[in-house]
Design a protein around this nucleic acid. Structure first.
Length: 240
DNA sequence: GTCAAAATAT
DNA sequence: CATATTTTGA
């Protein structure tokens, strides 16, 4: 009976720098094609008001090369974020459930295609696993021990079918914008947290203390691609 | 030291 | 874009 998220007035923790867009920082970085194409959103455990000690950072003129010792932490997929991921995929449909689309639909700042792609891969394997286990087997559902994060999110029913039919929708006229006017959710990624007195839900539903709620992705019927006047929704024009 | 999750490479 | 492999975190 619970299917709608509860939009609590609580917001996520204020990030240090809200003025610096990751893109700008990204422009400064990227010395090599394959290094670490990730925006740096450093959640400093220590409040860093940016001391006026830029000394060697900027140096005089010509000093460029940004701090080389800045390594970026890994992405932490919190259940909420995964929920949003599933939500986006569910609303897009298997047909359009591609990393790029998902990423854009999620509108999560700091999230890149690679992140989504990787998670999507795992998600697909999780679904496949569940399918294989459901065949001729009664009772044994997903083990709480396997797929920790995935188990926390309800899997939409329409995920279990590959594709209804090769029906091509040639109605490229109406494009509907969805959840594009949302604010700018920030991605929370920390190095590692030690769940001190947090967590410990006896019923298996573990939760993460961080990451508040993201702007809801309003949407309706998924990919009811049944022929007829079904309106499949398409994504907005190429954004990023 | 092991397993899982994320990143990266193909 | 999907899959496989490697790396990193727990």
């Amino acid at each position: 009976m619970i299917e709608e998220e509860l939009p609590s007035p609580e917001e996520l923790m204020p990030l240090s720098q809200t003025l610096i867009t990751p893109r700008l920082a990204l422009a400064f970085d990227i010395p090599s094609p394959n290094h670490r194409p990730r925006q740096h959103q450093p959640p400093p455990p220590y409040a860093q008001p940016i001391p006026a000690d830029l000394g060697d950072l900027v140096s005089g003129a010509g000093g460029d090369e940004p701090p080389r010792t800045l390594k970026r932490p890994r992405l932490v997929w919190t259940p909420q974020l995964h929920k949003r991921f599933v939500d986006a995929v569910a609303h897009l449909g298997i047909n359009n459930a591609v990393p790029k689309t998902i990423m854009q639909l999620m509108s999560v700042d700091g999230l890149t295609r690679e992140n989504v792609a990787s998670h999507l891969q795992k998600y697909r394997l999780y679904l496949k696993r569940m399918q294989g286990l459901s065949g001729g087997n009664g009772g044994a559902t997903a083990d709480p021990t396997t797929d920790h994060l995935f188990a926390s999110s309800p899997v939409p029913p329409h995920f279990l079918h590959p594709v209804p039919g090769p029906q091509q929708q040639h109605h490229h006229h109406q494009q509907q914008r969805i959840a594009a006017a949302v604010g700018h959710p920030q991605l929370v990624a920390q190095y590692h947290r030690q769940m001190g007195q947090f967590g410990s839900s006896p019923n298996g539903q573990f939760e993460h203390p961080y990451l508040g709620k993201q702007p809801p992705i309003h949407n309706q019927a998924p990919s009811s691609n049944g022929n007829g006047g079904i309106k499949a929704l398409t994504l907005f024009p190429t954004g990023e």
